[in-house]
Design a protein around this nucleic acid. Sequence first.
DNA 1: ACGAACTTGTCAGGGGCTGACAAGTTTGGC
DNA 2: GCCAAACTTGTCAGCCCCTGACAAGTTCGT
Lengths: 195, 195
Amino acid sequence: MGLREQTREAVRAAIAERALQLFDERGFDATSVEDVAAAAGISGRSFHRYFPAKEDAVIGDATAAGHLVAETLAARPAGESPWRAMRAALEPIAALSDANAERTLRVMRVVNGSASLRARHLEKHLLWSRILTPIMRERLGERPGGDVPAQAIVFAALSCLDVAYAGWIAAGGAGRFAQVLDLAFASVGAEEPGQ
Amino acid sequence: MGLREQTREAVRAAIAERALQLFDERGFDATSVEDVAAAAGISGRSFHRYFPAKEDAVIGDATAAGHLVAETLAARPAGESPWRAMRAALEPIAALSDANAERTLRVMRVVNGSASLRARHLEKHLLWSRILTPIMRERLGERPGGDVPAQAIVFAALSCLDVAYAGWIAAGGAGRFAQVLDLAFASVGAEEPGQ
DNA sequence: ACGAACTTGTCAGGGGCTGACAAGTTTGGC
DNA sequence: GCCAAACTTGTCAGCCCCTGACAAGTTCGT
C-alpha cells in the first residue's frame, strides 16, 4: 500500500472518530456535515470525498464484514443445521463486538438514535444477504420456492443480530454480546426446518 | 367525518396515485417532488402538506396496518405456538395483498427499487414491532432476557414477510402471496422454540 | 528537479424539507 | 344571505445533503 493511501486511511479514520463523537454528543440529525468537517479541520466538500454520505462516517465498511460472515458460513460442516450454521457464521461479528464492547455500544447507540442511520445499517443487511443467500441455498440443496427458503433464513438471522444488539444496549452492555445473540437465535430458529 | 376532511383525503389519494404512476415510470429517485406536484396540479410546498416526506406518498399509513396485525395476534388462542401465531397475525396483510395483487405488486416493485423507499418501508416494521412485541412477550410468559425473545420472533416474522414479497415479485406475482409467505415461515420457524 | 497524480477549497446548483406570510376559499352560526 | 373563524394554497426564503467543475497547491516516482 502506497504512502498516500496510508495517510488517506488515517485521515478517514480521524474524521470518522470526530464524527462519532459529535453525533454521540449532539445527535446525528442535529449535527451537520459542515460541523463535522470543521471539527476535523477540512471543508464540507472534502468530507464527501472521504465518505459518500454522512451516514458512512458511522457505519464503516460493510463489504468487509459481509465477506467475513460469508467465508465463515461457507466453512461450516455440511451436516450442521442451517440455523446453527447461521449462528456460527455470525460468531466473528459477535467476537468483534465483545472485544470492542465499548466502541460497539457507542456506535450502535448512535445508529439506533437516527432513522437515516438505521436505514443505512439495514442496507448493510441487504448487501450481506446478497452474498449469503447463494451460499445458504447451496447448503439447503434442492428445494421448491427459489431463493425464498435461503433468503428467509438469512434475513431472520440478521434480524436476530439486530435484536440482540438492541437487547444488549438495553442492558447497558452487561454480559457478553454473544450470549444475547444465542438467546435471540434460540427464540426463533428450528433445528430441523419444515418443507 | 367533515366534508373538508373528506375532500382532503380524496386529494391525498389522488396525489398518491399520480406519484406512484410517475415513480413506476421514471424511477423514484429520478422523479422530483416538484414533478409529482406539477402532475397533480399543486405546488411543491403543498405536496408536503399532504405527505411529510416524498416516500410517504408510496408507503401510506403504516399505523393502521400495524394495529390490524396486532389485533389479530392478540386474538390468537393461547395454546398456539408463537411462530404459528405470528404467521396467522400476518394473514390479514397476506389476504389484502392477494386481493389487490396488481397494486401490491406495483407498490412493492417501486419500493424495492429505491434505497430511501426501502428504508421507509423498514421503519414501518420498527413501528409494528413496538406494537407487537408487548403482545408477544405476554404470550411467551416468563422468560429470561427481557424483550429479546419476543422481539426476535417478531422481527424474524417481519423479515419473512419481506422475503415473501421479494419472492413473489421475482415470480412475477404468480400464485397466491399467502402461499409464498407460508414457505418463508416454514423455512425458518420452530414450532417449539428453545429456552 | 520535474512532470504526473492526487488533494483541497471554492463556487454553483439540484433536490428534500420547513417556517412565515399574504391571498383566497370553505364552514358554520346568525 | 352574511360574516367571522378556520382552513388551504402559492410564494418566498432558508437550511441541509450531495455533486460536478475548476483552479491552486501538494506529493510521488523517476
